[in-house]
Each structure stands twice: as C-alpha cells, then as structure tokens.
Amino acid sequence: MALEQKIKVFKWISILEGISFLLLLLIAMPLKYIFDLPLMVKIIGMAHGVLFIAYIAGGLYLIKPMKWGLTQIAIIFGCSFLPFGPFYVEKKYL
C-alpha cells in the first residue's frame, strides 16, 4: 500500500475515533447516568474501543514511513485521550 493510502486510512480512523469519543462523552454517558439508559454506552463504547485500538495501531504503523520523532509520537498518542485530540492530529500531522 502506498504511503498516501496509508495516510488516508489513518485520517479516516482518526476522524471516526474522535467522533466516537465525542458521542460517548456527550450522548451515551449522559443517557446512562442521567436517564438510566446504558445501552448506548455499550454500543458506542464498543465502537470507540475498536476505533481506539485501530488509531493506536495505525499510528504505530506510520511512525517509520512518516519519520515522526519522539515528541510527535507522544503528541499523536497523547491526543487519543483527549476529546478533540484526533482531529488535531489529523489536521496537524497528516
């Protein structure tokens, strides 16, 4: 797979991971804890977990071809824990 395609796939993973995190925090969690409706947390939480793992794996896969340094790697992986972090990574590093 060409580098451009790898970057494109990682961009989509990054965007989807960011969206799933926001949905989990802003919709699913309030539904669970305010309205006692835990089903959305199970559904969105599972999707977010899969996308989170894909984000980390994709980031690891791109370290060498993108020639990221330790600081960039730390920022990219650290952003996976912030609600809008994956969007920042997608715009700044890809």
Rank of each mutant, 00 (worst) to 15 (best):
E17T: 15
E17S: 14
E17D: 14
E17G: 04
G18A: 03
G18N: 04
G18L: 06
I19E: 06
I19A: 12
I19V: 15
S20E: 05
S20T: 09
S20Y: 02
S20K: 05
F21D: 01
F21W: 14
F21R: 04
F21P: 04
F21A: 08
F21S: 02
L22R: 07
L22M: 14
L22A: 09
L22G: 04
L23Q: 00
L23V: 00
L24W: 03
L24E: 03
L24P: 06
L24C: 04
L25W: 07
L25D: 02
L25E: 07
L25R: 08
I27W: 14
I27T: 11
I27K: 13
I27P: 08
I27S: 08
I27H: 10
A28K: 01
A28L: 04
A28N: 05
A28E: 05
A28I: 03
A28G: 07
A28V: 04
M29Y: 07
P30M: 09
P30S: 08
P30V: 10
P30G: 10
P30N: 10
P30D: 09
P30Q: 09
L31S: 10
L31D: 10
L31R: 11
L31I: 11
L31M: 15
L31P: 12
K32A: 08
K32L: 11
K32C: 09
K32E: 08
K32D: 11
K32G: 10
Y33S: 11
Y33N: 15
I34G: 02
I34T: 12
I34D: 14
F35G: 00
F35Q: 03
F35H: 08
F35E: 06
F35P: 00
D36Q: 14
D36G: 05
D36E: 14
D36N: 15
D36Y: 13
L37W: 10
L37T: 12
L37N: 11
P38R: 09
P38H: 05
P38C: 10
P38Y: 11
P38E: 08
P38K: 03
P38N: 10
P38M: 06
L39S: 12
M40A: 15
M40E: 12
M40C: 05
M40Y: 10
M40H: 06
M40Q: 14
M40G: 03
V41R: 04
V41M: 10
V41C: 12
K42M: 14
K42V: 15
K42Q: 13
K42L: 13
K42Y: 15
I43W: 05
I43F: 07
I43Q: 01
I43Y: 02
I44P: 01
I44S: 00
I44W: 00
I44R: 00
I44V: 12
I44K: 00
G45Y: 01
G45L: 02
G45R: 02
G45M: 00
G45C: 00
M46E: 01
M46W: 10
M46F: 11
M46T: 12
A47K: 01
A47Q: 06
A47T: 13
A47L: 14
A47W: 02
A47E: 06
A47N: 01
A47M: 13
A47G: 09
H48S: 00
H48N: 06
H48Q: 04
H48A: 03
G49V: 05
G49W: 07
G49P: 04
G49N: 07
